[in-house]
Design a protein around this nucleic acid. Structure first.
Length: 489
RNA sequence: GGCGGCGUAGCCAAGUGGUAAGGCAGUGGUCUGCAAAACCAUUAUUCAGCGGUUCAAAUCCGCUCGCCGCCUCCA
């Protein structure tokens, strides 16, 4: 059974075959560091984090490069607005990005190169393109000669003619062809500047990724990823640059994820409908965001809403809740006792890992994998409930193994990484904030209610329960005592 | 205008030729003093609409409608 991945370039799925057996080399376009990251960036980070973890779980060595764009028009503009330098601004937001990633539990890439630290490589690459007649200098700028590259448009499935038909292509008189794009931009006064054969200037946007991927992964590597909006022009231009300069294929598989939308519209700064990662994490634990992100296939749009996040929170609690219950099972069972687990349930528990792999092998189908998790938990709950007072040792062992397997696999999605009891407690405390009642007050009311119950004063007991419910506190009586939880919003 | 994607229950969502996963919500039951949680059962004769291919279609083809994205910075 092999891992099958959808490739934007071919528009179809194919088995992943690394260039070097057992080793995947992957490059993902990171952020332009000029502002706080929004949940679209979070989706990108989370999706590729999941992909890297799954590839490693499948036994591949993974070299994962994710760059920072730290010089660009937006950075220059924002730095001027804030009366600071581009360097200070980009470094500040790279720091913020790292904070966000840490809170999301996103593992660090192998390397996180910055454009400004690779200007030498960029200049060499541009020189090579000029030598090959794929680029030309105009004043202090250098442009890529799009018509000279036969495959231009192959990734995004468009022809130069189609694109020229669009009215939105602005005409720059300096360019030989309207679609030619800048490799090097001569700098204006006050802008960050590097010396080059074409005079003082700075790199164009696309060239940095060609230069850095070449340096760290070689002329040809396995996977290149990013958001769908990067297909054109960014990745199209990268192909033109890299293949133009090396004469070799650039990337084997292109992976692009869908957008995060709000009310079915793409989040964007111009619409003002974006949410930052830190805003969302103020309201929800990181794992809730992860569950939300992975509940849809990575290539589909993902519509953010409070309802969706609350659903995800409920779902996550269901998973943690089941694990917390399992953890309370007695240590030792009766050795050699007959099993109380039916054949079908047993099969479900034993096949957890298998089904997970099957789902994930099909183009990282996390939505299906999560569905399997819920089914597994359903079975575990059912089996647990059906256990006799003194369960068979064998059954306890199977349940514990299943729970351990579930957590092991969920960790690939960055889920169920906390101690179940601790998660439930922390979530409870977080929800308790701002409800106007303390844990001690709740405990006192429960004690009073239990006293009333003992005295068969059910009217009073119910009154107390209603009072608690009014404050969003739900109580749960069981043989071992009364527990409580905060009702989800 | 060019290119691409999507439309599955109240909501979210998987399913790419073999007879509709899963989550959230709902209903009935077990349990409970009553509840809650959990479990059991149940909830789409049907996959935007129409037509076609096929023994067989949500899945393939054509057309129609609706929504979205890219073509300009963008995850």
């Amino acid at each position: 059974m092999s891992l099958v991945v959808y490739n934007t370039r071919t528009g179809s799925k194919a088995p992943l075959e690394p260039i070097e057996p057992g080793h995947i080399r992957m490059y993902v376009c990171g952020i332009t560091a000029y502002d706080y990251c929004h949940i679209g960036h979070a989706r990108s980070a989370l999706v590729f984090d999941m992909i890297v973890r799954y590839l490693r779980y499948r036994g591949y060595q993974v070299t994962f490069i994710r760059n920072f764009t730290d010089i660009d028009d937006k950075i220059i503009k924002r730095a001027q607005e804030q009366n600071t330098t581009c360097e200070e601004l980009s470094e500040r937001f790279i720091r913020m990005f790292h904070e966000d990633m840490a809170r999301l539990g996103v593992a660090a890439p192998t390397l996180e190169p910055k454009a400004t630290e690779h200007v030498g490589e960029i200049i060499s690459l541009i020189e090579e393109l000029i030598k090959r007649d794929l680029a030309y200098q105009v004043g202090n700028d250098v442009y890529y000669k799009v018509e000279q590259f036969a495959d231009y448009g192959a990734l995004s499935g468009r022809s130069l003619d189609d694109m020229q038909a669009g009215a939105r292509v602005s005409v720059n008189e300096n360019k030989a062809h309207p679609m030619d794009f800048a490799l090097w931009k001569g700098s204006k006064p006050g802008e960050p500047t590097w010396e080059s054969p074409w005079g003082p200037g700075r790199p164009g946007w696309h060239i940095e990724c060609s230069a850095m991927s070449k340096k760290y992964l070689g002329d040809t590597f396995d996977i290149h990823g990013g958001g769908k909006d990067l297909v054109f022009p960014h990745h199209e231009n990268e192909i033109a640059q890299s293949e133009g300069a090396s004469g070799k294929p650039f990337v084997k598989v292109w992976i692009h994820h869908g957008f995060v939308t709000i009310k079915d519209e793409k989040m964007s700064k111009s619409l003002g409908n974006f949410l930052t990662i830190r805003e969302v994490l103020e309201k929800y634990p990181a794992e809730v965001l992860r569950l939300f992100v992975f509940s849809t296939h990575y290539r589909n749009p993902l519509d953010y809403s409070e309802t969706a996040m609350n659903d995800a929170a409920s779902g996550l609690e269901r998973l943690y809740g089941a694990l917390a219950e399992l953890a309370q099972l007695p240590e030792a069972g009766k050795a050699g006792a007959a099993s109380a687990i039916g054949a079908k349930d047993r099969e479900k528990l034993i096949s957890i890992e298998n089904r997970f792999q099957q789902a994930m092998d099909n183009d990282f189908n996390t939505a299906l994998a999560l569905g399997n998790f819920f089914e597994a938990v359903k079975t575990m709950n059912k089996v647990r409930q059906g256990l006799p007072t003194v369960p068979a040792a064998e059954d306890l062992a199977l349940l514990r193994e299943s729970a351990a397997t579930l957590r092991h696999l969920a960790a690939i999605l960055g889920l169920l990484t906390e101690e179940p009891a601790a998660y439930m407690a922390a979530r409870k405390n977080a929800l308790l904030q701002g409800l106007g009642i303390t844990e001690a007050e709740i405990e006192a009311l429960i004690a009073a209610r239990n006293q009333a119950r003992k005295e068969k004063d059910f009217a009073k007991a119910d009154a107390i329960r209603d009072e608690l419910l009014l404050k969003q506190i739900e109580i749960k009586d069981s043989a071992s005592g009364t527990t409580w939880s905060v009702k989800a919003a």
